[in-house]
């Protein structure tokens, strides 16, 4: 017993006061990309060629567009750009309501909006989610799971991951949705009481990620069920996940 008290004393109070304070990110953390104004070198394709996952394309004016829904945040494009137009910031607020909202072609980004008033009235101050890993590699899952630890203390925001879809207001889905999880995912979705919400977390769940195009997967959740919130990253940082959910609850 004394040992337990001693340990409690040693471990201190570690819950980070988010959103009152902004959590410190590692100096090398890669957050939201920005594309500076200015012209690309004519005929340049360096960023597109450097991207390992085809997350980059050139827009009508031949300037780069980064799809955060596929992006690994590897910075290869940033290094490749001869005009230094692509810059990755430390901004970890990456969630969007629509897939198109994840396309970045400027220094601006429209952050996710809260769910509709009717849903907010129904859910009140809490949100119960059922997590489904559908071909996820356990990185997105781990960075979701970590939100329950004292550092984040998810429960203080009224958010809880529950054991049954019947107790849930929505699903948080990770993974590209493997063929072998399609049925289980759809059944879990159908078991939700309505109205319900769906959150696609991580590049795989949004677009298929590194598995895009494999016949063994469904290239993301959106091809099977409607998605209300997209949280990009490979995997997203836990603060990105938490920030996205809080925004969606209208708490930020």
């Amino acid at each position: 017993m004394l040992q337990i008290l001693k340990a409690r004393f040693h471990q201190k109070y570690r819950t980070f006061p988010f959103p009152e304070k902004m959590p410190p990110m590692a100096a090398r953390y890669t957050g939201r990309p920005e594309i500076a104004s200015g012209n690309c070198k004519s005929g340049c394709n360096a960023c597109v060629a450097a991207c390992p996952v085809g997350a980059l394309s050139l827009g009508e004016n031949k300037r780069p567009i980064i799809d955060m829904g596929s992006c690994l945040f590897c910075r290869a494009c940033e290094t490749a750009c001869p005009e230094k137009l692509i810059n990755f910031t430390q901004d970890f607020s990456l969630a969007a309501n629509k897939k198109e909202g994840l396309l970045i072609n400027a220094a601006t980004f429209k952050r996710a909006e809260a769910m509709g008033n009717e849903l907010r009235r129904l859910f009140g101050r809490s949100l119960k989610l059922r997590q489904v890993s559908a071909g996820g590699c356990n990185a997105c899952e781990a960075d979701t799971n970590v939100l329950a630890t004292p550092n984040f203390d998810l429960a203080r925001y009224g958010i809880q991951f529950v054991a049954s879809p019947r107790h849930a207001d929505g699903l948080l889905i990770t993974g590209p949705v493997s063929q072998n999880m399609k049925l289980a995912l759809l059944k879990t979705y159908e078991a939700l009481p309505s109205p319900s919400i769906v959150i696609a977390t991580g590049a795989c769940a949004i677009s298929g990620g590194l598995f895009k195009g494999n016949s063994e997967v469904n290239d993301g959740v959106g091809n099977l069920i409607p998605v209300d919130l997209y949280i990009p990253g490979c995997p997203p940082n836990p603060w990105t996940i938490l920030e996205g959910i809080l925004r969606f609850m209208g708490r930020l």
């Binding site: 071909g135 493997s178 072998n180 999880m181 289980a184 598995f211 494999n214 016949s215 063994e216 997967v217």
Partner: peptide
């Protein structure tokens, strides 16, 4: 349930 076809996808894939 998590099968994503990894080994099948590797041949011909760029190393990066």
């Amino acid at each position: 349930y998590q099968h994503r076809g990894i080994e099948r996808a590797i041949p011909g894939m760029p190393h990066e």
